[in-house]
């Protein structure tokens, strides 16, 4: 059935859209193609002929790509486009972490560009500020840059941790290889979250001591949830990883 998968992949891989949307397209077209194949087999065709007939009935992959592309939303297209810019075949853990972190950064930059002038215009219209636009930009940068660096670093770090975490489980049973390894990664995540949050808010408030006294108890509670978050992440990703695997390993000669 690999030939059927390849036909579907030729149509879907060039589509610029987010991974979830593309996975849905792949599975649905493949499912259809399998039914067509069974139908062709039932008419007496041998397997090779049935595959050819089924692929022909589904249509030319390039034409299908264009039709599928037209259904992708702008948000999905944007996510897919960023993926495409920074994605490399057979990327490493670090490469994947860089990709996700840069994708995050690229997603928030336009948001800030839109939000800052909008806030200024609204505040000026309702007369709630005497600040100039430049003052507002400066204030936004003061908060925005440390927060952007912090959030991007979180995405990078937790992507690496997530990769390590996924390796702690045996496939396909998904039993942990080492309980110590799982807890160790959870502990590292907790410490990283605590330290980085403390650093961020100390910079923003300019008062590390007050930050510590005010926020540390809350952060400790929040950070203690990290093991549950990490375990939940693995369980939630499990299905998607299993579903994506047969597609990502396909060699498609005509990729654009």
């Amino acid at each position: 059935m690999q030939d059927l998968r390849v036909h579907v992949e030729k149509a879907v891989r060039p589509v610029v859209a987010d991974q979830g949307t593309k996975l849905r397209m792949r599975e649905e077209l493949y499912s259809h193609l399998l039914e067509v194949f069974e139908e062709e087999r039932a008419t007496g065709d041998d397997e090779a002929a049935a595959i050819l007939r089924a692929n022909d009935r589904l249509g030319d992959p390039a034409a299908l790509t264009a039709e599928l592309q037209a259904t992708a939303s702008r948000v999905s297209w944007y996510e897919g486009a960023i993926d495409r810019i920074v994605h490399r075949q057979d990327e490493t853990e670090i490469g994947h972490a860089c990709r996700l972190a840069s994708r995050y950064l690229l997603a928030i930059v336009p948001l800030i560009i839109v939000v800052v002038p909008t806030v200024w215009i609204i505040q000026t219209l309702i007369g709630s500020t005497q600040k100039s636009f430049l003052d507002l930009v400066s204030d936004s940068l003061w908060f925005g840059v440390p927060f952007g660096v912090f959030a991007t670093a979180q995405v990078f770090f937790f992507t690496i941790i997530a990769h390590r975490m996924l390796r702690q489980f045996d496939k396909p049973s998904w039993r942990p290889r080492s309980i110590g390894g799982v807890f160790g990664l959870c502990a590292v995540s907790t410490v990283f979250l605590l330290v980085s949050s403390f650093a961020l808010f100390s910079i923003l408030t300019g008062n590390p001591r007050a930050t510590y006294e005010l926020m540390m108890p809350k952060w400790l509670i929040a950070s203690s949830l990290m093991p549950f978050v990490m375990t939940g992440f693995v369980l939630a990703r499990r299905r998607e990883i299993e579903r994506l695997e047969p597609w990502s390993s396909l060699e498609i000669a005509d990729e654009t």
């Binding site: 149509a11 077209l29 259809h32 009935r57 249509g59 299908l64 039709e67 259904t71």
Partner: peptide, 8 residues
């Protein structure tokens, strides 16, 4: 009609 066109 090519059957793939149904999905879009």
């Amino acid at each position: 009609l090519k059957e793939g066109s149904l999905y879009p």
